[in-house]
C-alpha cells in the first residue's frame, strides 16, 4: 500500500514537472506562430496522458497545479487569469467528451484546443469588452483545431508507449492488484 502511494506521488510530481517544463519552453518562443498569442499547447500532451492513462482527477489536479506553478514561477497575475480560463474550459470540454466514449483521443484534443482558445478570448472579453476580439476568435478557433490535432496525435503516441509504466495507478478497474 505504501509503495503504491509513493509511486502515485512520484508519478504526479514527474508529470507536473514535465508540464511546467513544456509550458516554460513554449513561453520562450511567444512569436513562434504567425499570429501573436498562438501556441502549440505542448502541455496538453501531459494533461491528455493523465486523463486517459491515469484518470480524470489526476488530469484536473495536474492541469490546475501546473497553471498556478507556472504563473508563480514565470508569469504574473494577468497570465494566471488567462491561463486559468483556457485550462479550465478545455479541461471541462475534454473530460466531458471523453466520458461520452464517442470520440477518439485526437478529436477530444481538437475540441480541447478550440475550447482553450475560446476560454482565453472570453476572459479577454470580460476585461476589454470589445467586439474587436471577434477577429482573433476566428483565427484562434482554427489555430486551436490545428494545434489540437497535432497534440492529439502526439498524445496518442506518448500514451501508447507510456501507459504500462503508470498502469499501477489505482483505479476502480483493478482493485486486486496489491
Amino acid at each position: 500500500m505504501q509503495g503504491k502511494r509513493a509511486r502515485r506521488i512520484s508519478t504526479y510530481g514527474m508529470l507536473i514537472a514535465l508540464a511546467m517544463i513544456l509550458s516554460y519552453m513554449e513561453s520562450l518562443v511567444p512569436a513562434f506562430w504567425a499570429v501573436p498569442g498562438m501556441k502549440l499547447g505542448l502541455t496538453n500532451i501531459v494533461v491528455l496522458f493523465a486523463l486517459y492513462c491515469i484518470g480524470t482527477d489526476s488530469a484536473v489536479g495536474i492541469n490546475l497545479l501546473r497553471v498556478f506553478l507556472v504563473s508563480v514561477l514565470f508569469g504574473n497575475g494577468f497570465g494566471l487569469y488567462y491561463s486559468l480560463a483556457g485550462a479550465l474550459l478545455s479541461g471541462l470540454v475534454m473530460i466531458g467528451l471523453k466520458k461520452t466514449g464517442w470520440f477518439r483521443m485526437i478529436t477530444v484534443s481538437v475540441a480541447g484546443g478550440v475550447a482553450h482558445n475560446v476560454g482565453q478570448i472570453l476572459a479577454a472579453y470580460v476585461l476589454l469588452r470589445t467586439q474587436a476580439l471577434l477577429g482573433y476568435l476566428v483565427i484562434l478557433w482554427f489555430a486551436g483545431m490545428l494545434s489540437g490535432a497535432l497534440i492529439g496525435v502526439m498524445s496518442a503516441i506518448v500514451c501508447e508507449r507510456l501507459k504500462r509504466f503508470v498502469s499501477f495507478e489505482g483505479n476502480d478497474s483493478r482493485k486486486g492488484l496489491e
Partner: peptide
Amino acid sequence: HATGKGATGKGGKDGLLI
C-alpha cells in the same frame, strides 16, 4: 482505459464533431 485501441480506434462520431 481508452488509450491503445481507444487512442486510434473506438469513437465513431469523430467526423461529426470535427
